[in-house]
């Protein structure tokens, strides 16, 4: 939970790079425009100056369109980040609610969460500074309270909740493979 995710960072780097290009384009456009305007007021319009003005206009148009593209990119990144946060938050709440429902003690809840995150007994014991046997016993309690027999089943409880959750359409009871729904 420290710092942005790799994907997020990549998106950020891409939009930053585009932003830098836009800034450079804007700078170039301003200098061209300034030069063109100065030349026109001093020497009148000739082909050279006209070309400069056209380049300035083209750059300015490029900036505007680039900016619109940029907006789309930034907002898309924001949206997916928000969705990710929501999903994360939802899963966290779900896990907490289940743990409370099963009546796990704080220690058991902590061990169970680590187990869900994929730590093995030895790692959990190391992280908690507890004996292997203690962690094993706590995990056994968790499984018993949750009514499951293994870590995989414990995990399956939450996967199940996620898949059966607020999915649109009738959530099939598993009697049918959701093979070719919506291409």
């Amino acid at each position: 939970m420290t710092g942005p995710e790799p994907g997020e960072r990549r998106g950020g780097a891409r939009s930053t790079a585009l932003a830098v290009v836009l800034v450079l384009q804007a700078l170039a456009a301003a200098f061209f425009a300034g030069d063109a305007v100065a030349d026109i007021t001093l020497a009148g319009l000739d082909l050279h100056v006209a070309m400069e003005a056209v380049i300035a206009l083209a750059l300015a148009a490029g900036v505007v369109f680039g900016a619109r593209e940029m907006r789309r990119m930034v907002e898309q990144a924001d949206r997916s980040e928000a969705a990710l946060m929501a999903a994360r938050g939802a899963l966290g709440e779900l896990i907490e609610a289940r743990f409370a429902h099963w009546g796990l003690t704080p220690a058991e809840a902590s061990v169970a969460l680590m187990a869900l995150k994929g730590f093995d007994v030895a790692a959990i014991a190391g992280l908690r500074g507890a004996a292997l046997g203690t962690v094993r016993a706590q995990l056994a309690h968790v499984y018993a309270k949750a009514g499951v027999a293994s870590r995989a089943e414990l995990l399956a409880v939450f996967i199940d909740d996620l898949l059966e959750g607020p999915v649109d359409g009738p959530a099939a009871g598993g009697d049918e493979l959701p093979a070719a729904r919506e291409g």
């Binding site: 804007a26 700078l27 456009a29 301003a30 900036v63 900016a67």
Partner: peptide
């Protein structure tokens, strides 16, 4: 000065077409 004007112009464009 020109650079500042360019940045200002970009920001003003961004104020119309930019992020919410």
């Amino acid at each position: 000065g020109y650079a500042a004007l360019a940045l200002l112009a970009l920001r003003l464009v961004w104020g119309v077409v930019g992020t919410r």
